[in-house]
Computed example of a mutant assay.
Amino acid sequence: MSDGSTGNGEARPRPQYGEYATPEEQRARIQRPEVTEALDAGVAPQPERPAPAPVDAARPGGLRGPLWDRIITGGLLAYGLVSTVSTIVQLLDFPRYAESAANVLGVDATYTNLQGGYVWGAAAALVYGIGWLLTALLTWRRLKRGKIAFWIPIAGFVATALVAGVCVTLALVGDQQFMTAIIGSVPN
């Protein structure tokens, strides 16, 4: 009966609905219609790839990870944004910024290197702005992957403050008169 006949001399029609399919082939055709096309073309079906993890609809933007981490990270980024904007505004008027710093130290000093102050103040302001944006981007990417991220705003602040601090120091050191007043006020 391997010739496809029914035993009474009549030829049996070719199966159309998978009567001779293995259970694996039947499951593959039912679950994945593209497998049917592959099998009809004589190609072995490819193993099923795992579906990507579903994005939790309760979390905006697909953020994952512990709630405590997202709260702390968001708070640090918000505080950093307010601090960054405030610092940028101050640095763009560098002579006043330098004189305010001297007043905090209890020194009456006037910043006179205006050109250098404005250039280095703007550079420090730019560093703060780019530093915050880069920190926010890296934090967002880490949060989307569901990894702990609270440390990124802290590390971003430290790195940004160090680079901006170099710019501020170069501006301050560039004014000999101002530095003489600061150094002269240090007790022996």
Rank of each mutant, 00 (worst) to 15 (best):
Met1Ser: 13
Gly9Asp: 06
Gly9Glu: 07
Glu10Ile: 11
Arg12Met: 15
Arg14Val: 14
Glu19Val: 06
Thr22Gly: 07
Glu24Pro: 04
Gln26Thr: 12
Ala28Met: 03
Arg29Ile: 12
Arg29Met: 11
Gln31Asp: 14
Arg32Leu: 04
Val35Trp: 04
Glu37Ile: 12
Glu37Val: 15
Ala38Phe: 01
Gly42Ala: 04
Pro50Glu: 15
Pro54Leu: 06
Pro54Asp: 04
Ala57Tyr: 04
Ala58Thr: 14
Arg59Asp: 08
Gly61Ile: 12
Gly62Val: 08
Leu63Met: 14
Pro66Arg: 13
Leu67Cys: 05
Asp69Ser: 07
Ile71Ala: 05
Ile72Gly: 00
Ile72Cys: 05
Ile72Asn: 03
Ala78Cys: 12
Ala78Leu: 15
Leu81Ser: 03
Ser86Cys: 11
Phe94Asn: 06
Phe94Ala: 11
Pro95Asn: 12
Pro95Val: 12
Arg96Met: 04
Tyr97Ser: 03
Ala98Ser: 04
Glu99Gly: 06
Ser100Pro: 06
Val107Ala: 07
Val107Asn: 02
Asp108Lys: 02
Thr110Lys: 12
Asn113Phe: 00
Leu114Val: 13
Gln115Tyr: 11
Leu126Trp: 01
Tyr128Ala: 01
Ile130Met: 10
Gly131Met: 06
Trp132Thr: 08
Leu137Asp: 08
Arg145Met: 14
Ile148Asp: 08
Pro153Phe: 10
Ile154Arg: 07
Ala155Pro: 00
Leu162Ser: 12
Leu162Asn: 09
Ala164Gln: 05
Ala164His: 02
Gly165Ile: 01
Gly165Ala: 00
Leu172Arg: 05
Met179Pro: 00
Thr180Glu: 15
Ile182Val: 07
